[in-house]
Design a protein around this nucleic acid. Structure first.
Lengths: 211, 211
DNA sequence: CGCCAGGTGTTACCGCGGGTAACATCGGTG
DNA sequence: CACCGATGTTACCCGCGGTAACACCTGGCG
């Protein structure tokens, strides 16, 4: 099966990499072929279809982030510190090469499947890693399997959305973001004091009519 | 602007709605036109382009979900109960019409945007609503603005990813899912007892081969 | 030498989807 | 009547993913 050091393949992947860095995940096969100085059929000979190319391109970058996440999850620290390390590892990753991690987190693709297709493959792998770590490290009683799997997905989605927003807006330094997210996971929302109820309507117009 | 009761427009939106319910967010303009018993140019006259149509279609369904979320966020309950109500409201929404809410949560489309474009518009509105509710109801000290905005995004992404997974796999009844997510937000991950460290490698091969 | 095999490359095409131009039709109003 | 606006059509353009068919150049092997 494949992967038996094909230098040409690497060249083509490099070209694809350049184009994706420039045009984002929506880069066209024509553009990639042109960047490589060739024409489409060669790309299709090497990668089968567009999905195959982007999969190869993705796998190239996934391992780095994934290994870092695994290492952080296995670090022998107090739990809170470990969680902060994991969060910081992810944010540092997307911060270092935004365009590349855009490809990992939002492949866009849009293949025809009945339903679902929620998390990108790379994100699914991260979710699995979190699930595994939670299962191995935390005593959650009889519901452990369901809880850890749910939490793996939930935490991944949480840090994904928060990370996207942070990258776009840069509302604070990274360390602060890590604290904010760790605080959320540590139940600070539950523990904080209530504010006196203000009888203000939260939204000016309720909603235009629905016929 | 707009919305000045254009009955024809409503008819077309109804047809589009039917097609999206059947084919999901990838529905083609041709299919929608056919369902409406007409041809493409009419659609384009009414909605400008595909994006315009789907935006109109989205706004139609957004209000329902958003109103429900607002109502849940404003319910006079103990905080934990309110959070559970909000989670349940969202999950009930996506459960009732998966294809429709697929449209709200994953518009996919693939329009040319420079960078970013993390959360779909409907999700962004939900995030704003959560932010507003947290700001109004919880005392978070001097960092309140940053925390509540971060948490709004984070919680939205969390429930989005978890909801997608739940819809796909149906691993448990809805009430259980609500409990699992509320437990996470309530710091159960932080509070649970540790397990004895098992020196097992968490992943068998660092990176599996490419089939 | 001739010949085949395989990797590299090309041009030209198909089907489909978004989007548009140009023309046809009908109902009402001055 | 002429005019106008909404409704509708056919026929087309373009770009994209994907493919067929053909051309070339190397090398090994009889």
């Amino acid at each position: 099966m494949a992967a038996l050091e094909a230098p040409r393949r690497e060249q083509l992947l490099n070209a694809a990499d350049r184009v994706v860095r420039r045009d984002g995940p929506g880069a066209s096969m024509n553009a990639i072929a042109a960047e490589a100085g060739i024409t489409k059929p060669i790309l299709y000979r090497h990668f089968g279809d567009r999905n195959g190319l982007f999969q190869a391109l993705t796998e190239r970058h996934t391992s780095g982030l994934l290994d870092a996440m695994r290492a952080a999850l296995a670090e022998p620290l107090e739990r809170r510190e470990r969680v902060e390390l994991v969060l910081d590892t992810y944010l540092a990753g997307i911060e270092s090469r935004p365009q590349v991690y855009q490809l990992l987190t939002h492949p866009e693709a849009g293949d025809p499947n009945g339903v679902g297709s929620a998390l990108a493959p790379a994100m699914r792998q991260i979710a699995d890693e979190i699930t595994r770590a939670v299962t191995a490290q935390v005593d959650l009683g009889p519901d452990a399997p369901l809880l850890s799997e749910t939490w793996g997905r939930a935490i991944t989605g949480m840090v994904l959305a928060a990370g996207d927003w942070w990258l776009e807006q840069r509302p604070c330094p990274r360390a602060r973001m890590v604290q904010a997210l760790a605080d959320l996971l540590w139940g600070r929302l539950a523990a904080a004091a209530p504010l006196p109820a203000a009888p203000l309507p939260s939204a000016p117009p309720p909603t235009p009519p629905t016929p």
